[in-house]
Nucleic acid binder design. Structure first.
Length: 569
DNA sequence: TTAGGGTTAG
């Protein structure tokens, strides 16, 4: 509800213009202008606007607002500029309200510099002016400017720092652009400022926790959102958070407690189960979904096919793939083909995988070829791997890991010229390897371990702990893998750093700091390598600990010497 | 009849 003062403020310009209606002509002009604005007849409205200006007349703000909306709906930038010039005519300042409308117009045109100019020229701004700018920047490539403006706003209005909408927009913008840590910092600032987060803000916060695999923090957020118990979107985000953090019991609990479920709920849970290695349960859930009357969409089918590929369910995979069009009217797209190529390839049917790849209705992309490369790794097919790796590099020349894989393949066949060629290519293209990095949450804080980086305060102790662990494992038969050829899909591996792959350091740290019985959860930026996979299986048995590793594609649950992925990843 | 934000699955 608008306060009386606000209403009066809004009415003032209308009253002013009414008082100036001295002649019938002018009244007619204004009426005409208003009519054209409402009719969204931009050229006519602009013509009348010019005439108005020559009479020294301004229409009321509601009319101008409509006119600007009209420019926006026509995406008429030029006309928008005309209106702006009209409003500033003869040194006039548009009233606050109209300046805000102008800012919004430029934001919608994605002309942030113009928007910021209007903002800068305003003698007075309100929270709407700030929000419009901050929100625009938080979604743009200039996110830093959103933070700068927020700081400026705090100085300008320390007690209030805007309102919940400002916070919501900036947190949402950062969460949406994978700036999870910044989003969470802002959320803390928001709470310190005494603001209460609404559903959408909390959903963004959950998204940020999901992005960082912050289970503890996500659970804390869960406690705070019980009042939105039956909010569908929030619950969907919760299910996803628990799945992505590898905590399937919690995910199931939320899922089962939901009174309303939509296609996203079902798809999230199906994919979540599949990614975590519970393929049969995922397929069963798909049946329940159909029984519930919810229609699957193409994402649901991606999850279903992923479940099949994960468990090597060749027959089921083919069945779902072949019948998706007929049963659900869904045309297979790249992701579906990708799942099938993965399934066929890892089941040892590389020829069929290649055949399907060639039959694709859409062009295979880098991801498709990388999928085939992954299958070659499992099958140890160097010839096809070389071909697939070349294709990946062709389509994604910045993919550092694949260069390494290709280089390893050449080195293994002693094609040293080719090895040198790859190195030159990488140098020429400025491709740098992303260093392997693993994160682990202890006491709601993230600890990062980066390969070759010694900056963690406990790094000496962690390395010592790891050394002891390796020695004990060698005692029970662990042989460090030294054949890198196809072991390491992302090319993280280097001989001397093998002992200190980031996830091994994170594991050692987890063993040191987390109480017995607590699951050790690690998130990685690169895919786990063959040696680490063996290492983690053995470590889970030796240390009697459950370990979950989330890599960019899927999850590995290590328990009692086994991994949920069944060694196909 | 006039202004700002944000939300989930791949």
């Amino acid at each position: 509800m608008k306060s009386l003062t606000t209403k009066l403020k809004l009415l003032r310009p209308v009253l002013t213009s009414l008082c100036s209606y001295s002649s019938t002509d002018q009244t007619l002009l204004l009426n005409e202008f208003t009519r054209f604005c409402y009719q969204r007849d931009l050229p006519k409205a602009l013509r009348v606007m010019d005439t108005l200006q020559s009479h020294g007349l301004w229409a009321d703000s509601a009319t101008y607002s409509e006119l600007i909306k009209c420019c926006m709906s026509h995406r008429a930038v030029h006309e928008g500029n005309l209106v702006r010039r009209h409003l500033y005519f003869n040194g006039h300042q548009p009233m606050l309200f109209l300046a805000n409308v102008l800012i919004n117009m430029y934001v919608k045109f994605n002309l942030l510099t113009d928007a910021h100019n209007v903002f800068d020229e305003m003698p007075l701004r309100n929270v709407v002016s700030w929000t419009t700018m901050i929100s625009a920047y938080s979604k743009s490539k200039q996110q830093q400017k959103a933070l700068e403006l927020l700081d400026a706003l705090s100085v300008f209005d320390e007690m209030v720092t805007g309102d919940a909408i400002v916070w919501n927009s900036i947190i949402g913008g950062f969460a949406q652009n994978s700036k999870s840590d910044e989003a969470l910092k802002l959320f803390k600032r928001m709470k310190r400022g005494g603001f209460t987060a609404e559903q959408a803000t909390l959903t963004s916060v959950l998204r940020a926790c999901t992005g960082l695999t912050l289970l503890e923090l996500g659970m804390q957020a869960h406690v705070h959102i019980v009042k939105y118990d039956q909010d569908l979107i929030l619950n969907n985000a919760l299910v996803d958070m628990y799945c992505k953090c590898g905590s399937l019991d919690d995910a199931r609990r939320v899922f089962n407690g939901m009174k309303e479920r939509d296609v996203i709920t079902w798809s999230t849970m199906i994919s979540g189960l599949a990614q975590n290695g519970y393929s049969q349960e995922a397929l069963k859930l798909f049946e329940s979904m159909k029984a519930s009357g919810t229609k699957p969409n193409y994402i649901t089918i991606v999850g279903v096919l992923f479940a099949c590929s994960h468990a090597g369910l060749l027959e089921d995979g083919w069945y779902y793939f072949r019948s998706m069009k007929k049963l659900y009217g869904i045309d297979p797209v790249r992701e579906h083909y990708g799942c099938m190529i993965d399934l066929l390839g890892k089941a040892g049917k590389l020829d069929d995988a290649v055949k399907l790849l060639n039959e694709m209705e859409c062009e295979p992309d880098a991801v498709t070829w990388r999928t085939l490369l992954g299958a070659c790794r499992v099958q140890g097919n160097m010839v096809l791997a070389e071909y697939a790796a070349k294709k990946v590099i062709e389509l994604d020349p910045d993919d550092a890991g694949t260069y390494t894989v290709l280089s390893n393949i050449y080195a293994n066949s002693q094609k040293w010229d080719s090895v040198e060629e790859i190195r030159t290519q990488m140098r020429d293209r400025g491709v740098k390897k992303e260093p392997g990095c693993s994160w682990i949450e202890v006491n709601k804080k993230i600890h990062a371990f980066i390969i070759g980086d010694e900056s963690h305060p406990l790094i000496v102790e962690v390395k010592e702990k790891l050394k002891q662990l390796i020695d004990r494992m060698i005692g029970i038969g662990y042989v460090p893998e030294t054949n890198f050829v196809l072991q390491d899909l992302e090319g993280e591996q280097m001989e001397d750093s093998l002992r200190h792959h980031s996830e091994k350091l994170a594991l050692a740290f987890g063993l040191m700091t987390l109480p017995l019985g607590k699951v050790i959860r690690i998130r990685k930026n690169l895919r786990i390598c063959g040696d680490c996979h063996v290492f983690f299986k053995l470590a889970s048995k030796l240390e009697k600990r459950s370990v979950v590793i989330r890599d960019p594609i899927r999850y590995h649950h290590f328990e009692d010497g086994k991994c949920s992925c069944g060694d196909y990843w």
